[in-house]
Computed example of a mutant assay.
Amino acid sequence: MSRFARSERHHLADLLLAVGPDAPTLNEGWTARDLAAHLVVRERRPDAAPGILVRAVRGYSERVRRTIAAQPYPELVDQVRRPPFWSPVSNPLTDELANLLEFFIHHEDVRRARDGWQPRHLPAEMQTAIWRRLPSLARLALRRFPGSVLIQAPGIGETSAGRAGDRLRVVGPPSELALLFFGRQRVARVQFDGSPTLAERLRSARLGI
């Protein structure tokens, strides 16, 4: 595992235990228990994991997730903390690519659902690692967005996404931009510059993978 994917995993597991199974998350309708079960399905149930993304088999995936969620909560969180070595998304060859954003986003899903949260100060190397994933993430999230979006992380890089038309500039650290393009607009600390109409559409768009 990369050290950042691993650290985000363990920080999330610690937080899940600290807040308890019924704590809210930014994922609509999901408690901490539901979120933990989602991660277990993703890593340990290759028969059900496709339903996370594929609507046609989502019903089966949800049934499996609810069954897993019924386990004792400490055991559930321990499965999040200790991924199986054979998992397609969590083995040493795939962990950096598959899990850095996954665990960073879900860590923030729990953190930012609580009162009094503040953005964390992340290591520069971690911000750079997140940035490397931003161009493809933004292009996917904005593939139908009716405008051109210039995305800037000061001191790190810039990229663009969306379609031709009115222009909008979005500025922030890579971690906050990642939250934005994963559909967490209401908690993402970014700045908008340009068309007010496009800015409002981006704030309210259904984004995410």
Rank of each mutant, 00 (worst) to 15 (best):
T159D: 07
V171P: 04
L53E: 07
S175F: 04
P72E: 15
E176T: 03
R206D: 06
G162M: 02
S160H: 05
V77S: 00
P84Y: 08
S90K: 02
L207M: 11
A98M: 10
G116T: 01
A153L: 05
G147S: 15
D47C: 12
L12S: 00
E43Y: 06
R63H: 13
I156K: 02
L39P: 01
F104S: 02
P88C: 06
N99T: 11
S136F: 12
L198H: 06
P84T: 14
P154T: 04
P83H: 03
G147R: 00
A124P: 08
Q71S: 15
S195Y: 09
R65F: 09
R42F: 06
P46R: 08
R6S: 14
V57K: 15
A124W: 11
T25A: 03
A178K: 04
F85E: 09
D95E: 12
A5N: 07
P72D: 13
S7H: 11
E28D: 12
E62M: 07
F145P: 00
T128R: 13
L179R: 02
R33L: 05
D47H: 09
R186P: 09
T128V: 05
Q152I: 06
I156V: 10
A153E: 03
A178R: 02
P83L: 04
E176P: 03
R3S: 10
P119C: 05
R120K: 08
A32V: 05
G183K: 01
F182C: 15
R132N: 15
Y60S: 07
R66K: 07
I130F: 09
R42W: 06
R139G: 06
V80N: 03
A178C: 04
Q191G: 08
P88W: 10
T128I: 07
S7Y: 15
T25Q: 00
R203C: 03
L76F: 07
V170H: 02
A178G: 05
D166E: 11
L122R: 10
W86M: 06
P119H: 05
R111T: 08
T25K: 00
P21W: 05
A178V: 10
A124V: 14
R9I: 04
V110Q: 02
N91M: 13
D14K: 10
S2A: 13
E96K: 14
